[in-house]
Nucleic acid binder design. Sequence first.
DNA 1: CATGAATGAGCCTTCATTCAT
DNA 2: TATGAATGAAGGCTCATTCAT
Lengths: 215, 215, 215, 215
Amino acid sequence: MATRTKRPVGRPPDELLRARRRHELLHAAIEVFARQGYQRTEVQQIADAAGVAKGTVYRYFPSKEALFLAAADYAMQALTQCVDEAVQAVEDPIDRLRTAAHAVADYFQRYPERIELLAQERAEFRGEIPPTHLIYRERRRERFEATIRRAIQQGRLPQVRVRSLANALYYLLFGAILCGSVERTPRQLRKAVCEAFDAVLAALDRGQPNQQPTG
Amino acid sequence: MATRTKRPVGRPPDELLRARRRHELLHAAIEVFARQGYQRTEVQQIADAAGVAKGTVYRYFPSKEALFLAAADYAMQALTQCVDEAVQAVEDPIDRLRTAAHAVADYFQRYPERIELLAQERAEFRGEIPPTHLIYRERRRERFEATIRRAIQQGRLPQVRVRSLANALYYLLFGAILCGSVERTPRQLRKAVCEAFDAVLAALDRGQPNQQPTG
Amino acid sequence: MATRTKRPVGRPPDELLRARRRHELLHAAIEVFARQGYQRTEVQQIADAAGVAKGTVYRYFPSKEALFLAAADYAMQALTQCVDEAVQAVEDPIDRLRTAAHAVADYFQRYPERIELLAQERAEFRGEIPPTHLIYRERRRERFEATIRRAIQQGRLPQVRVRSLANALYYLLFGAILCGSVERTPRQLRKAVCEAFDAVLAALDRGQPNQQPTG
Amino acid sequence: MATRTKRPVGRPPDELLRARRRHELLHAAIEVFARQGYQRTEVQQIADAAGVAKGTVYRYFPSKEALFLAAADYAMQALTQCVDEAVQAVEDPIDRLRTAAHAVADYFQRYPERIELLAQERAEFRGEIPPTHLIYRERRRERFEATIRRAIQQGRLPQVRVRSLANALYYLLFGAILCGSVERTPRQLRKAVCEAFDAVLAALDRGQPNQQPTG
DNA sequence: CATGAATGAGCCTTCATTCAT
DNA sequence: TATGAATGAAGGCTCATTCAT
């Protein structure tokens, strides 16, 4: 009944507006969740930060929890993208590893709050959902291990199990980010992460000198 | 009202009782906080787990927060002790490092819940207090770096900055514990942590083969 | 934006459209309010049921409350009409009473949800407005009591106060509808209402057998 | 662990206190729910009326809904008791019926608000739970129908189906209470209910004059 | 000292209503 | 005129903390 012309032929403007606002909300959420923690954050504060009414938040995300997880996912996706771009043109496997690590360090120097999202996610939702960062790790694992395998084949890295070494480097990076962000400025964080990673990489590397210090 | 244990003339038993109950409360707190997370845990649940009334909890700890921090501190202290004991008799520096790492892995295999305490502490109280584990790290840093320095002097580890290498190994261990505990049994966790650490250590090590596999 | 039915020169069609839509909204409202209750019903649901946008509802009714009351009134008006039509040609006073009661039963067998409207109206708006059904009762009271008076004069009903008997029969019918609708199918409801009313009527009736069982 | 002497031997005081407060809460709930309706009532208002904090309400009833239903049940139980007591010593079946109806009228003259509870219950929770008053009706049905059967056997009531007549009288009473409470004082309500019931009873009654007007 | 009933601030979520397009 | 995105007041329920017994 009733002949309603829903969504006037071309609908982009609506969709775009909606996407933009969703984006704004995510950014506001990252900012506030990161600064105050999940539990200490009121949805009203995020609404304020985004310049909308509280009810509007719920038009875009069904719950505070969903908003948080979307924010965490957004942050991890952005990180992944940064790393992918940085690594893209790098051929030498050892360089690739270092470049990737430095891209991570750069990212968190630029968005230091987002580290907290990882920590929050783990603490609040452990058990219910697998941490976002581990999901993204799995998606990249194949490529990551291939790089390491190549480095070993080229005699650049010692002959240890690829999986173990890949895990170790991931753990090192992850631990450095989490620990390093405590009582450090973003700049110091970046330095600490790079130094730790580079130290191990340098120590592991045997030969063919084609690594230039980055940063 | 009938059989009430009125304070017996000598005070000591009271002191002992109080210490014992505090101990029980800490264990109950670790157990429940670790299983459910700080925010999702009600003080009543800890009281139940400890077999006391809720009010009693507040006779031993001024607040839920203080109880949590005391529990986290307790867990870290126990970990420190385990590592100290394990490392005590080991002379060879590389062995010392591996032994320490394995002691950490053993500890968290035995008390896997306690990993959550670290994560919770970071997420909930970041900014207000420095994480317990970093405090304990600082206390042991001197000794830790001394071990590494010795290994380098003996030519067992490559010549990179001690501080950087020490940090890197700490980050690696910390990251392995935190990441490794997700979707793994305590046994698998231990294996993953040891493998990652050993892989790096083996890769770093130059020479004098005196490492026996532990565990 | 392309094919928009701009107000055609003569206004009538618009008026008709408006009336039709108002009608559709009332039906949708009856349906949804009856099924879910006033408070549990969202205006959006009625808009959906009517196939219009939520804002449109407010172009026809100033508030949710007004919409509900209009719906209840509509239902009672339809009932009144049914009863009036059924009773129109019936001469014998006892038959008129029975016919009226059966018309009510028929109506609610056909629109069982509408019983809920009566219940809802009473519960939600008591005190603010007199229940619709009592308003309609007052309008018909004169005629109703005249019928009873006639039956008494004809010696068909015992000599009790007309007002009391009229009230009693109304209460009986009203109570039967409200109670009878619980855990009964519409068909069973009709049967229960008719049986109860007929039983009393038969018990009251003295003589001149001209009642045929209806339904 | 910990040898706690829970509930000091005799526990009456606690239990009594709890029962008393539960009682107070029920009365406050009846009062406020009846005056304002279920939805328009805030739990805080009931807490205020009972002189306790909001949290305390939730120590006695798990939810607003449960509180309401408990209140409705309480009111119906009290009604049942009043009727039982009034009817107890009455032998003559017609008298029993009238006495019961008058007891109901008396009860609602005394507690006119409680009528609203019945209306509210029906409106808010229809479908989820059977109305309290119908549950209590079922429990008394056997006795009620026995009385009517006896009256018929004694030739005091006409020979119509017992079940139908019992239902009819119940509906009449129920309808009278619900309709009669609108725009009437408690005193007028009582009068209207009694008159309507007595009118039908008088009209039905054949013979043996042993009914004295009550009230 | 231990208890656990009472407290009340706090917060997520809903949804009637508005209004720019 | 119809739309539906935005608004923000409202309220049920939780739970850390207190304190009379």
